[in-house]
């Protein structure tokens, strides 16, 4: 299989940049996002912050670390800390092995100006893009928990499901233990 065929396979799968119909007829700038699920809730981060997504890796517990730090791993000679977003946001815990299956779990490596951090997610749903106005509106419903809202940049209903766009700089800054 050539690289082109490999890429077309990826493009056909869920990791595609929205549909053509979605982007056609709208001149508004769109912001690319990565969507994922943690404890059944849907979240998104700006794709610009996503360095890579890794599958099964062995995590080492960090002695003395708070519960929201799931562990650390070595990725190409770099130590990366992995955040348990479910614990950090105090989400109700689902039995992920029943709800999704453990093989769907991934670690999303995020980069900001200050931090490189992995986020443990139950399932990566794919790439998406939201209109800039939806991101700037900061329209976050009050039905979600106060803690999650404090790290939300925006929220959007799609297919009767709410996706929360995380303010990743604020989240990582608050999760850091200095």
């Amino acid at each position: 299989m050539g690289l082109g065929e490999l890429l077309s396979g990826v493009e056909d799968a869920s990791l595609s940049w929205g549909s053509d119909e979605e982007s056609a007829g709208s001149s508004e700038a769109r912001i690319p996002l990565l969507r994922f699920r943690v404890e059944g809730d849907a979240f998104a981060v700006e794709a610009a912050h996503v360095r890579e997504i890794v599958g099964r890796v062995s995590l080492t517990a960090l002695p003395g670390a708070p519960a929201h730090i799931r562990g650390i791993m070595v990725l190409r000679r770099q130590v990366v800390g992995v955040l348990d977003l479910g614990r950090f946001l105090k989400l109700d815990r689902l039995d992920a092995t029943v709800a999704i299956g453990p093989s769907a779990a991934r670690i999303v490596i995020l980069e900001t100006a200050l931090f490189t951090v992995g986020i443990y997610v139950d399932q990566v749903e794919g790439l998406d893009s939201w209109p800039q106005s939806a991101v700037q509106a900061h329209d976050v419903p009050e039905s979600i928990s106060k803690r999650t809202r404090s790290f939300a940049r925006a929220a959007r209903f799609e297919d009767e499901s709410l996706t929360i766009l995380l303010n990743i700089e604020k989240l990582l800054d608050d999760a850091a233990v200095r």
Partner: peptide
Amino acid sequence: LPSWLKGTLPVILRKACGYDNLKRI
């Protein structure tokens, strides 16, 4: 170690780590 994690380590550990062939810390 990433700077954002150094504060978590107990005082009796150095603020760095090693790893073996199996990538164990």
